[in-house]
Write a protein that binds this DNA or RNA. Structure first.
Lengths: 191, 191
DNA sequence: TGAAGAATAGACCGGTCGGTCTGCACGGAG
DNA sequence: CTCCGTGCAGACCGACCGGTCTATTCTTCA
């Protein structure tokens, strides 16, 4: 039971944070949704901020799992592995009702107001880009990418554009912007 | 004086909305900053939501001014005009301390919770993309763009990626992601 | 069995939120 | 001059916010 309550809170928090954002997410509402008394919440988390940061950590666990799954698939050429990761993310967004990316949402909302969150989100993006970059470097060495391209810049670019497309797909409730972005990026990067 | 108070509120609101987002923007704080009593605020705006929507309208006036300025400059080739617009935006972001784009910020924060804002922001993006698309169409007809490219899709793509880069530049407090994105886009789109 | 700490439980708190209400100042129209 | 609409002014309101506190229950292990 120990973990279960905390886990339940984090899980529900993930969904609610995605939909409501940070400031519009009420502790009260979270507690009602998870049938948890307030005492439990503040037993497991020292504050709302602490809670949100842990939700992000949990989100990143899933992200890294997705990265393992796609980038680790060595039966695919490296460029396809990268694309695979984002297509997986797109499918996840679909299942969630196109609410976009938690990092983008929280990042936009809080980076102007909280240094803690600003740093946190930037660190998460860097971590993702770093892993993508490794795979792009492999592609470069295979000749799938022009040798003069910097894989790290290319990876950050991809992540950034992805976040923009994710916002747009959220606004539209549709995956089109995500697919269009991937098509453009991979045809342009490879040539 | 009639306009002045409302104008002052909208202007301050623009900055505060950009930094704090919607939910973290307190009416109280806005009133203190602008030395305005509460009665005046609710005389001019029927609610906080109404206020924010008008702030967005005001923001869009500036955006369209920027579009007029850049896209209307017929001494430049159309592709350069488009790039010019985004470079202008980048400079504006710099002057504001790299807080990114209001549309992106508000869009991310509220689109999961308010249909009104979701639609509003999507409409704004479409308006920008539409004007960009016109210019891209001109470029296509001149042969600066491959004839099989759809200017509208290309324009939306550009706007989307820009928003992602704007978020990242906000997280970093630096323009690099914006420039990297523009470089990539224009070299890829044109070839 | 019993002591101790983890976890649950929810009443309660001060502060702040968005929003309302009433009254006053002012300026042009009759 | 009065009248009336517009804008300024701020006290006030109930609701809700995140967070605290104390008490109780469960779990574990000596």
């Amino acid at each position: 039971m120990t973990r279960s309550t905390k886990e339940r809170l984090l899980e529900a928090g993930l969904g609610m944070l995605l939909q409501h954002g940070y400031n519009d997410l009420g502790i009260q509402a979270l507690l009602e949704k998870t049938q948890t008394p307030k005492g439990s919440f503040y037993h497991h988390f020292k504050s709302k901020e602490d809670f949100a940061l842990q939700v992000i950590d949990r989100y990143m666990v899933d992200v890294h799992k997705g990265l393992d799954l796609s980038l680790g698939n060595s039966s695919l050429p490296p460029l396809d592995r990268v694309r695979r990761f984002f297509e997986l993310s797109r499918d996840k967004y679909r299942d969630e009702g196109y609410l976009g990316c938690l990092l983008g949402g929280v990042g936009q909302e809080l980076s102007g107001v909280s240094e803690v969150f600003r740093r946190k989100i930037e660190t998460c993006f860097n971590a993702i880009a770093e892993r993508v970059a490794e795979c792009l470097e492999e592609a470069r060495q295979r000749g799938d990418l022009p040798p003069d391209r910097d894989p790290r810049k290319l990876a950050n670019l991809l992540v950034d554009c992805w976040e923009g497309a994710a916002l747009r797909s959220r606004l539209r409730g549709a995956p089109d912007p995500l697919d269009a972005m991937l098509d453009f990026y991979f045809s342009a990067a490879a040539r």
